[in-house]
Amino acid sequence: MAKRKVQDPMKYACLIYSDEKDPGANPDPQSEAMQPIMAGYMSFSEEMGERIQGGEALMDTAMATSVRVVDGEVVTTDGPFAETKEQLGGFYILEADDLDSAIAAAAKIPHAAMGTIEVRPVLDYSA
């Protein structure tokens, strides 16, 4: 594995998991209940500023199609890769100095209180 220089900031993917069937964590987008969650994300993105390098919210797993190639043939299945209690609902790519800063940032993502944020360092091919 390539060694990075100590001073280089790293990039981390913060993968946001929560139970999409839980109305507390994932209310109807038009509903009242959505307001505080949206406000939470707004203030998160304001606070993080340029450290947010990218990210998207995802439609729910009912919209997902899983694709794999088996013996040269494309096989598609309805649904997510794995049925789990919490599903990937969105992600951020954040810049952070080290894992501690990344964890501190992940803890501020509103869904950290309603689900789980997986913090994964992004592989840097240029290093």
């Binding site: 594995m1 060694k3 990075r4 790293m10 981390y12 952070a96 100095d97 080290d98 894992l99 501690d100 990344a102 360092p121």
Partner: peptide, 10 residues
């Protein structure tokens, strides 16, 4: 050790 280096544990 891999995680310390790879994940950027300070």
């Amino acid at each position: 050790k891999k995680k310390i280096a790879g994940a950027g544990i300070p």
